[in-house]
Design a protein around this nucleic acid. Structure first.
Lengths: 373, 373
DNA sequence: TTGAAAGCGCTAACAA
DNA sequence: TTGTTAGCGCTTTCAA
């Protein structure tokens, strides 16, 4: 049984030199005689020496760890962000650690060199609390919500204005003139999407389509959702309480599909808050006998991998979550290492064609739908 | 602009005491005069002092970090394992860091107190390589594959024998006598399931049902999958190369559904490798006009959250991935902290009823299926 | 070309 | 009850 950890001191002793020689050898820095060098390397190897990462971190005042501060890891978008940052981090010798619980208080107990925030709202809160006397490099993704934090925090931007421009124009080109928006609630992260959808449809079609907003107040949503869980998943909610803690956009999409039908909304296409919600929306429509896209077109936002398991394949506006993650990591690492950075980084976006948007020619589909009733 | 990091020395200076007094105060250990105590605390707060986690780690020789060494984070099972460990870890003051790339070489550069391995096969490999001269506490989940590592590695077990017993007996009770198994490949992690399904069906029905194995050789699978991607997701495969790196069990399920039909397998029920595969299997059957469960019953394994977005709701054998994660973290932390542990921990399992298994009375459904052709 | 020594931020044994 | 000191594993300056 060997000693718990072999240190440079141990190697030095065995090689008959001083620790500094060992250090210089291993770091390939400074002078050291060729033969000694060789001996030291041999002995280090033979003794199974590895640098102690904690000691290294203390000395260098650099942990080579990045913190991704996200709420819900079961969300496909976040996972993909994480994948992206991980790749860049690895390339540059870092590791990404997660805090999936929004616990600001633990940040200062965590060994990290910088933080990646999941959106501008969280960032704003952070900067006004912990961030006040903890000056760690931070980058944040940004979706165009109105927030107040210094320009000195670099942002990686997915502008909802662009997203909605793509969605609305894409749908318009296919003949859609009445475009609804389905969002899980009427506040917080929905805000930017609602605002942009509103102004975009008004700009393109010349009139407000605000009646086409499908959303739930927080309260009604909870009630509906509880009901749904009782009916549908009693088993799993009893056995897997944890699952319910996550924000289940799929179920919200299902609920919103029913709201959409109940309110008899006169639209030919629905843009959904994100892909998971769109998937639930489609699924429930189908269950109720409404064929997508024949009767109604659906378009997601995100381009997350959940789309891979939608049938028919979801049409969506991809904002490339992985690239977003990559950019975040890139900028953050540059910031940490004192390199010059851009304070605004834009990630490209694009329509991913799928099978949930139908080309319609003349009058709006909804009339057909209505007439059939 | 305050000094970059406030240390105990700074606090001590300002309070006119020695660092040890500050330390004792902050740690609530040893003697220190009440009034000094108060002053120190006040000053520490006022200066915005926080303990330096790296220095702490070096001194205590404990990082309070656990490593979860898993390959694919987009896999719902792994995510749930992670959620489980995270909860326990948090309760006990630890953090779980991920290595989602199977890079053994980076383990020694990572600041961790112990490792959670995703399955016995990876563990075996680890112990025979890095683990040889790195004696970090390790726990592993265990699915009943034959492996060779010392009994001294604690396991958290989900025995595939039990799983198959539940699945086969559950299906038998509903009148099924011909039960197929769908696995993504014919080696590695499929082995245990294949073996247990084989012996179980033989035991229960008195004869081998080996013809009912639906699987793909690695090669044919790749070819089919590439084809599918070309046809189905050309857009996303061009734009999102990353997504394809993950093991897409959903698509495999789709492929296997076609294999199942092509081979005209004479079974009334299919047990699937995991829930994602089952979801793909059902989805493709439906697309091809085969109604689940009317024409064919499907049962998953795992009880992962992906099931929440299956419609009809998937029937499955839950092996409680979150609990598995919790147990792993619990045992590992006990091990790290020198507490007594059990070397074998079993996680309960249970059938989660859904809507994909049909009760059939007399003769097997497959005959009906056949006769309709 | 080498080694001694100070120091990264903290703890703990020991002496005062 | 307090302060001094050595040390966790490493780097780096400086004198030899």
């Amino acid at each position: 049984m060997e000693k718990q950890t072999v240190t440079r001191k141990d190697v030095a002793q065995k090689a008959g030199v001083s620790v500094s020689v060992v250090s210089r050898t291993l770091n390939n820095s400074g002078y050291v005689q060729a033969d000694k060098k060789k001996r030291v390397i041999e002995i280090a190897e033979e003794m199974g020496y590895f640098p102690h990462p904690v000691a290294m971190s203390l000395q260098k005042r650099r942990t080579r760890q990045l913190l991704f501060f996200c709420k819900d890891l079961m969300n496909s978008y976040n996972i993909q962000m994480y994948q992206g940052m991980t790749r860049i981090a690895r390339e540059r010798g870092y590791m990404v650690v997660l805090n999936g619980n929004m616990e600001f208080s633990t940040i200062r107990e965590t060994m990290v060199d910088g933080i990646i925030m999941p959106n501008e709202i969280v960032t704003e809160y952070y900067l006004h609390t912990i961030g006040k006397n903890y000056h760690l490099p931070v980058v944040t993704t940004f979706y165009g919500n109105p927030v107040y934090f210094p320009k000195s925090v670099p942002i990686v931007e997915s502008d909802m204005h662009q997203v909605m421009a793509l969605a609305v124009n894409g749908l318009r080109k296919k003949g859609h003139k009445k475009i609804a928006l389905a969002v899980p609630y009427d506040y917080d992260t929905s805000d930017a999407r609602i605002a942009q959808w509103r102004s975009m449809t008004e700009e393109v079609f010349g009139k407000r389509q605000i009646d086409f907003l499908i959303s739930c107040s927080r309260k009604s949503l909870q009630k509906e959702q509880e009901l749904l869980e009782m009916l549908n998943q009693s088993e799993s909610s009893a056995d897997e309480p944890d699952l319910l803690r996550r924000e289940n956009f799929f179920v919200k999409g299902e609920i919103l599909a029913r709201v959409f039908l109940k309110k008899n909304i006169d639209a030919t296409a629905v843009v959904c808050f994100n892909d998971e919600l769109a998937a639930g929306f489609c699924s429930e429509l189908r269950r109720l006998g409404i064929v997508v896209p024949e009767k109604i077109s659906v378009m997601g936002i995100d381009g997350s991998y959940i789309r891979q398991i939608t049938r028919p394949l979801l049409s969506t506006i991809s904002i490339y979550p992985e690239q977003q993650g990559e950019k975040c990591a890139e900028v953050l690492i540059d910031l940490i290492e004192g390199r010059r950075i851009h304070y605004v980084t834009r990630v490209p976006m694009k329509i991913l064609e799928g099978e949930t948007v139908k080309e319609i020619s003349g009058g709006s589909l909804c009339q057909k739908r209505k007439s059939r009733k």
